[in-house]
């Protein structure tokens, strides 16, 4: 709550500064201790300084509503940051923070919406555009950026209200696999790299299943950071720690086949050089001036 209060204060101070800039001789603005009253006053004043549309017959916005919204936004953003930070490793932000994010978005919409039905004025004017820094907008943008970078929307349904079934299934398989890792590893020798082959054998089906699910999700463009991270860590466990990826190398046939193919052009060029008839060009005699003494001066060729 501390930061929310600080936020409000700074916001109001900002407004106050603006007002001070315009009306430095007004004593009331300087010593007022009642935040509510001052803000209401400041808001009305700043509205009156706005261009013509604010002078429309609409009744002025009730400052209390806006302050309430501001409060709400502050709470929401605090919740969301808390959730994001605590879910940062291993990354599970999409699955666990979507409610907070949705809440934030709703509040933001409320701020943007007109307060009374007929009115065109919303709290957005007051809260979002009244100063130079646009703190709320900046916060909102930051959360949006995190959300887009994480591609969370591909794991959630259209309204960010619930996790997609495919995502849930994937996470379930993932949990199964980790479970399998832990069980097998635990029963064998912990802290030893030597004997993980059992892990490879026992968990292979689950690993493969997970991989398949991942590929499918990739095709459907429904990957978010949670899934990617889960898959990445699994893969590095699988190939790195357990060393289960043992591809078959068949170097000899590959060398044989490639040598054969590389040999073909040699045969081709040799045979075409030896057997193909060389293309000849017929020279044509150019018609030149018959009696030209001038050109005869050039006849004498030094080289001869």
């Amino acid at each position: 709550m501390m930061n929310v209060r600080a936020l409000i204060i700074s916001l109001l101070l900002c407004e106050c500064c603006v007002v001070m800039g315009w009306l430095p001789d007004d004593p009331q603005s300087a010593d007022s201790s009642d935040l509510m009253a001052r803000s209401a006053w400041a808001q009305q004043l700043s509205l009156s300084l706005l261009p013509a549309y604010s002078l429309a017959p609409d009744p002025p916005v009730d400052p209390n509503i806006c302050l309430q919204l501001l409060h709400e936004f502050a709470n929401n953003s605090a919740d969301l940051s808390n959730c994001l930070a605590s879910m940062a490793w291993p990354v599970r932000v999409c699955q666990h923070c979507y409610r907070e994010y949705a809440q934030l978005i709703t509040t933001m919409e409320k701020i943007g919406n007109p307060i009374q039905n007929s009115s065109t004025i919303s709290c957005a004017t007051t809260l979002l555009r009244s100063d130079r820094v646009h703190v709320i907008v900046a916060l909102k943008d930051f959360f949006d950026d995190v959300w887009t970078d994480s591609k969370c929307s591909s794991c959630l349904d259209s309204n960010n209200t619930s996790v997609l079934n495919s995502t849930a299934e994937f996470m379930k398989s993932f949990d199964d696999l980790i479970q399998c890792f832990n069980v097998t590893k635990g029963s064998a020798f912990p802290n030893q790299h030597a004997n993980f082959s059992k892990v490879c054998q026992l968990c292979k089906t689950s690993y493969k299943k997970l991989n398949e699910q991942y590929t499918e999700l990739e095709h459907n463009n429904s990957l978010c950071i949670d899934i990617e991270d889960a898959m990445n860590s699994t893969r590095s466990l699988w190939s790195g720690l357990f060393n289960c990826t043992l591809p078959c190398t068949d170097t000899v046939p590959v060398i044989a086949v490639s040598a054969f193919i590389l040999f073909l052009p040699v045969v081709f060029y040799l045979s075409s050089f030896l057997h193909s008839e060389q293309k000849k060009r017929k020279l044509i005699i150019a018609k030149r001036l018959k009696t030209s003494n001038a050109s005869l001066t050039h006849i004498l060729d030094k080289s001869n």
Binding site: V257, L264, P265, F268, S272, F273, S276, K279
Partner: peptide
């Protein structure tokens, strides 16, 4: 030397195969 059309086609094929190899 490689002026016959079928030879030209074969040459192109060989280059493609070698590139892949």
């Amino acid at each position: 030397y490689v002026h016959r059309r079928c030879l030209q086609v074969i040459e192109a094929m060989l280059v493609a195969a070698v590139t892949a190899t």
